[in-house]
Amino acid sequence: MLKKVISIVLSVAFVVSLLALTSCSIDFRSDVEKAMDKFLKADSYTVTVNNDLGMHTYMVNNGTVYFFEDYDETEKTSYLYSDENDYYYATVSDGEETQSIEKAQLKKEAYVIKYMDTIQESDIVNQVFAYRHILDMAEKTDKGYKYSVQESTDEYTYRIIYTIEMDDGSLVLTQKYESKKEKYEEQIVISNVGKTRIEIPDKVLSK
């Protein structure tokens, strides 16, 4: 009798464990939601922002930041990085004929704060974090989700369409703003999540 009871208890425990394991292994969420979670947890990623002003790319990898701007005739690349126990912020400006490198050694605290500010200013984490909660309210598209927001003020009415979609393994956020006065479009591509590596060029390291 006792053997039977033990056998039944063990069988039930086995089935429950198997079911629990299966339910947490199978991820029923959409690809976009999974990509958003992966990005929020990641220590490294690449973000490219394209808008009417130009393009900028920033790459993050565990405390190292690469930032590239191409807004006018000068291309500017910045690096925030640590080298053993020293911390640096370097900027490389490439004009049509000239190149200049400026490099400053930072105190550890200044480096930490600059790093946190850089992530904060990019606003990407904020956007992904907030949108993730309300995916259920969005309209589904072939590749992801679409939000449509219309706001009216006393002066004018504007409409913003946000999309969060997957494209070739990258998470793509677009924002289209339209009012009677102006139109604005921005595209943010989040790629290489968990795989981004940043190489600091020799010319910066040796400066």
């Binding site: 929020l40 930490v112 790093y115 946190m116 850089t118 984490v125 904020n126 974090f129």
Partner: peptide, 15 residues
């Protein structure tokens, strides 16, 4: 979301 952004950066700097 601002806190999430700050803490995400903080997490990168744990080392």
């Amino acid at each position: 979301s601002n806190m999430a952004s700050k803490l995400s950066a903080f997490k990168h700097l744990r080392d």
